[in-house]
């Protein structure tokens, strides 16, 4: 086989990077209006469960399941976002964290729908389904020199890559649009933004909705990448992990959570050789990071510097 180096395990880690990028971006979007929401693990679980139930029990195709899951999460984002307008700072953070916990407890207890603590297994996996569909059309993985499991992992990798790339591009564009500028204005000074004629209520709820939609989207993709979900996937730890992606990577620019998602997914893998201590190191690293670079790795000056250097190189050529 010509592609023996293509290791399904590495591809899987890489696929999780893209899901984590989406999650990091989801908290960034709400944070870009100055609202700290820790409910994104809850929204993620809504997307994941909705899509898993629709595809597994009702035979709905995966793409429709994913979109429905993301939409449902977005709608719940509006429902949470409206009362959340009254809260700010740590109150909002803890209340949304509470929302995530309540959702998780409901999923544990609503056994007829969600399978309870055991969760839902045998969810259609996007790679496997793609291969099955292609095989029906007379294609085989061997014809392109791949083993079946390599082909499946590669498909998942590429689909998630596309999903993450398109979402990031969309939100990068958004940040320099009317909406993005309204977000930035609200983050800097809400009263001034309101005085300048920005409908702060509308934009704050919109940001909440977009963040929820994005985490629901990531959750649905997660369900169809792993083909098994349970409430244990959406605990407090997940909520904190998502927050850390954004704050470690940098919460002042969208590329921050992207970097955070990549780096912090790879770090535990890279530390696997000292497996017993890796989360101890991870914790210590967070503390050190906040001491030496509290704004996160990526911040707007750094991006300007990198962009400036590239521009200078371009001019010199």
């Amino acid at each position: 086989m010509p592609f023996d180096w293509l290791n399904p395990y590495h591809l899987q880690v890489a696929s999780f990077i893209f899901i984590n990028i989406l999650l990091g971006a989801s908290i960034y979007v709400t944070l870009s209006t100055g609202q700290l929401s820790l409910g994104n693990a809850g929204f993620m679980s809504i997307g994941a469960y909705a899509s898993a139930i629709l595809t597994t029990r009702h035979g709905i195709p995966i793409p429709i399941g994913v979109l429905t899951g993301a939409l449902l999460a977005g709608i719940s984002g509006v429902l949470v976002g409206i009362p959340a307008l009254r809260l700010r700072g740590v109150y909002l953070a803890i209340a949304t964290l509470g929302f995530g916990e309540v959702i998780r407890v409901v999923f544990v207890n609503w056994e007829s729908l969600t399978g309870g603590a055991v969760g839902i297994a045998a969810i259609p996996q996007m790679g496997r389904e793609t291969l099955a569909a292609l095989e029906k059309a007379g294609f085989s993985a061997a014809s392109v020199g791949l083993r079946n499991n390599q082909f499946i992992s590669l498909t998942v990798f590429l689909l998630l890559f596309a999903a993450a790339l398109l979402s990031i591009l969309f939100f990068l564009r958004l940040s320099s649009s009317r909406i993005g500028r309204a977000y930035a204005a609200i983050r800097m000074d809400e009263a001034a933004a309101e005085a300048a004629g920005i409908d702060t209520t509308y934009y704050k709820v919109l940001a909440f909705c977009q963040g929820a939609l994005l985490s629901g989207f990531a959750g649905a993709l997660f369900a169809h990448a792993t083909s098994y979900i349970s409430p244990a996937d959406f605990t407090y730890h997940r909520a904190v992990e998502i927050l850390v992606f954004a704050v470690f990577g940098g919460s002042e620019h969208l590329l921050g959570p992207v970097f955070g998602g990549i780096f912090l997914t790879l770090l535990p893998e890279a530390l696997r050789f000292i497996s017993d201590y890796r989360y101890i190191i991870y914790g210590a690293l967070l503390v050190a990071m906040m001491i030496y670079r509290p704004q996160g790795v990526i911040d707007p000056p750094l991006i300007r510097r990198l962009a400036g250097r590239r521009a200078a190189e371009g001019a010199g050529r």
């Binding site: 700290l36 700072g89 740590v90 953070a93 904190v240 927050l243 850390v244 704050v247 470690f248 919460s251 989360y279 101890i280 991870y282 914790g283 210590a284 690293l285 967070l286 503390v287 990071m289 906040m290 001491i291 509290p294 704004q295």
Partner: peptide, 17 residues
């Protein structure tokens, strides 16, 4: 430049540790 998020994350780091 150290927002209130920084101390939140810092104590989260200690809790993970």
């Amino acid at each position: 430049g150290a927002s209130h998020l920084a101390s939140l994350i810092s104590t989260i780091g200690v809790s993970i540790l």
